[in-house]
Amino acid sequence: MRRLNVNGVQREVDVEDDTPLLWVLREQLGLTGTKYGCGIAACGACTVHLDGVPTRSCVRPVSTVEPTEKIVTIEGLSPDGSHPVQKAWVALDVPQCGFCQCGMVMAASALLKTKPNPSDQDIDEAITNICRCGTYNRVRAAIKAVAQGSTKSAGLSIRHVDGSVT
């Protein structure tokens, strides 16, 4: 049995050493918010935090993850979707199909933790996730909205059901 610290909880899994962390999360632990997109660390849909570092879990053998390393998945980013990045994503209607978006949110939240006010270049360098629907500009706008504490700069004027406009 192998021990993992996932979203603050000690879990035990019985898997082969070379199993990628992605598949342990999805199949042994049922945490399907972390997605399989490529299996070669090219697309970022599988991004999780390992001790705060954004990590592509599809190429990370589970045997290389220490029991003490803190793994945070999208399910553990906040208990209720209230992380500022998640709130900004909702406010600006960032997702389209949404399949890549959990990885985007994990990459963006890690970036904002190290650089609370990232430049465009910082964003380009940190967010190398693939989105085929093409949400990149709203992703950028949402990251800036978090940094600035306001969604107004995006100029999207989206009307929400509570009457708010973002």
Binding site: R26, G30, L31, T32, G33, T34, K35, Y36, T73, I74, E75, G81, Q86, W89, V90, D93, V94, P95, G98, F99, Q101, C102, V105, L156, S157, I158, R159, H160, V161
Partner: peptide, 23 residues
């Protein structure tokens, strides 16, 4: 009207179930 989409919240919390996620 520039209304917000009806299907956003679950896409940023990992709760949206895609075909691949079915259990």
């Amino acid at each position: 009207k520039r209304l917000a989409r009806l299907d956003t919240v679950e896409k940023v919390t990992g709760k949206q179930v895609y075909g691949m996620d079915l259990q």
